[in-house]
Design a protein around this nucleic acid. Structure first.
Lengths: 235, 235
DNA sequence: CCCACGCTTCGGGGCGCGCCGTAGCGTCGT
DNA sequence: ACGACGCTACGGCGCGCCCCGAAGCGTGGG
C-alpha cells in the first residue's frame, strides 16, 4: 500500500510554515517568482529555492522560466482543492477552539470583501453573486453540489460568458462546484462556471488586483454593472 | 492573517507517517481503538496516544469512551474530504514520477474491488454503480458536480432508500458530490446520496466488511440483487 | 481483592530537517 | 565585456519532535 506513505509525504510538504505560506500566496492562481515567494514566506532566497524545488518535484507546483525569472504556480486544480480542504478543516478546528470570530485585521478587510481563489472569485463579492443568481432562479446550490438553471445559462451566455466546456446536461443545466468561502463560511461558485465568471469580471474591468495582494478592488464601472446586471452592491 | 499558520499546523498533523497511517485507517468511517490505531501505524501505544491527543485537540478526530476502550473516528466529513484531496494530489504526483501503475498487491485486489470511503462506497463496485445509473438516465455526473435525475430519485425511493435530507431542487433533482475514485481514477457518488446508497447496501446485506480491513465483500445475495436491480456484475 | 488490560503521562535519547552563510551558474542591462 | 541580478548548490549549526522505556490511572474480570 504505497498511498499511505504518499499521504504523509504530500501533507508534510504543506506542513512546513514556509512552504505553507508560499502555497497560500499562490492560492489566487497567479504565478510568482522565487523572490516574491521568499518574501511571502519570510525566508532567505536560498531557503525558498530549496522548498520550491521540492514542491515542484512532488508535483504540487509547476515552474516555467522566463528570462532570468522563474515563475511558480500551483500545478493543477487538484492542488488548489487540496489546500481549500486543509484550510476548511483548519478553520473548523479553530472555530471550536475559540468561539469568537478570530481576528479581523485591517488588511483582512479587503481580502474578505473580494479576492480570487485559484481560478474563481471568493469573499463577500462571490457569495453575494451566488446569492443574487440563486434568488433569481439562475442558480441552485447545496452542500453536495449545484448547477445553473437553463435560465441562468441563457442569462450568462447573454452576457457573453463562454460556457462551452462544462456543457449542459440533457436538460440544459450545467453543474457548478460549490466552494466553502473561507471568510464568509458559506458556499460560492467554483468549477468551470466560477472560473468563467471570474474571467469575465476581469475582462470587463469590473475588478482588478490590489497592489501585490490577493485582494481585489471593485472598479467604479464594476459597481455600476454589478448593480445593474446582478442587483448587488459591491465594494 | 491567522489562517496561514493554521494551514501549516493542520497539514503537519497529517504530515507525520504514524498519524497519516492512523487517519488512513479511519478513512472508511469506522471508529477504532487506540490500540488498533497503534498497530495500524506500527508504533508503540504510548506514541499513538500522544498522536491521538494532538489530532483530537486539533479537531481532526472525535473520541468517545466506552468501557475501558476509547473509540476514535474522523471528526467530520470535512476531514474526510481533506484527506481525499491530499491523496488525490499524492496520486497525481506519483503518476508523473512513475508512469506505470504503481503496484497491485495481492491484498490491494480486494480494496480495488470494493471498499468504503468515509460514508460512501468506493472502488470498482462504486464506479460500476455510478456508470449503471448514468447509463439508465438516473444520474448525471461531471467533474464539477452531479445530480440524480427525477427518474433516478424515483427509482432509489422505490428501493426504499431514504433521501429526505438532500431534498430535490424545484425541478426534482438532488445533487451528488462526485468523488474521484482513488483506484479507478474515475468519479463515483459521494455526498448524501452516496451515503444513503452505501447504508442501503449494508442494510440489505449486499456487502459486508472483510475481517478488519477496509475492503468489502459482495455477498451472494448482493451479487444477485445488484445484477437484477442495477445490471452490474459485482465481486 | 488483586491482577489484567487499555490507555495515558513523563522523561531522555536520537535523528531529521529547516535555516542561513558562502559560493557558483545563467541571464539581462549598459 | 563587465557588473547587477535572480536563482541554485553545498555545508554546518541548531531546534524541534518523533520515538520508546518506565511508571501511574481507571476500568473490567476472576
Amino acid at each position: 500500500m504505497v498511498s499511505m506513505a504518499a499521504l504523509a509525504e504530500t501533507a508534510s510538504l504543506v506542513g512546513d510554515p514556509a512552504r505553507a505560506n508560499m502555497l497560500a500566496a499562490l492560492m489566487d492562481g497567479r504565478a510568482l517568482t522565487a523572490s516574491e515567494l521568499a518574501r511571502a514566506a519570510s525566508v532567505a532566497p536560498q531557503t525558498a529555492s530549496g522548498h520550491l524545488a521540492r514542491l515542484t518535484e512532488a508535483g504540487l507546483l509547476a515552474m516555467e522560466r522566463q528570462g532570468r525569472h522563474r515563475y511558480h504556480r500551483l500545478a493543477s486544480p487538484a492542488v488548489a482543492r487540496m489546500l481549500e480542504g486543509i484550510m476548511a478543516v483548519a478553520a473548523e478546528g479553530r472555530a471550536v477552539a475559540s468561539p469568537r470570530p478570530v481576528v479581523t485585521g485591517p488588511r483582512d478587510r479587503a481580502l474578505r470583501a473580494a479576492r480570487t481563489c485559484y481560478d474563481h472569485l471568493a469573499g463577500r463579492l462571490a457569495v453575494d453573486l451566488a446569492d443574487a443568481l440563486t434568488a433569481r432562479g439562475h442558480l441552485e446550490m447545496s452542500a453536495d453540489g449545484g448547477s445553473l438553471t437553463p435560465e441562468g445559462l441563457d442569462f450568462l451566455r447573454g452576457l457573453g460568458i463562454a460556457l462551452e466546456h462544462g456543457r449542459a446536461g440533457r436538460n440544459g443545466r450545467v453543474f457548478c462546484r460549490p466552494c466553502l468561502d473561507w471568510s464568509e463560511r458559506r458556499p460560492h461558485v467554483a468549477g468551470a462556471v466560477g472560473a468563467a465568471l471570474c474571467a469575465h469580471c476581469f475582462a470587463q474591468g469590473w475588478v482588478r488586483r490590489i497592489d501585490g495582494s490577493r485582494a481585489l478592488q471593485v472598479t467604479q464601472g464594476g459597481r455600476r454593472d454589478l448593480r445593474a446586471l446582478f442587483g448587488i452592491e459591491a465594494g
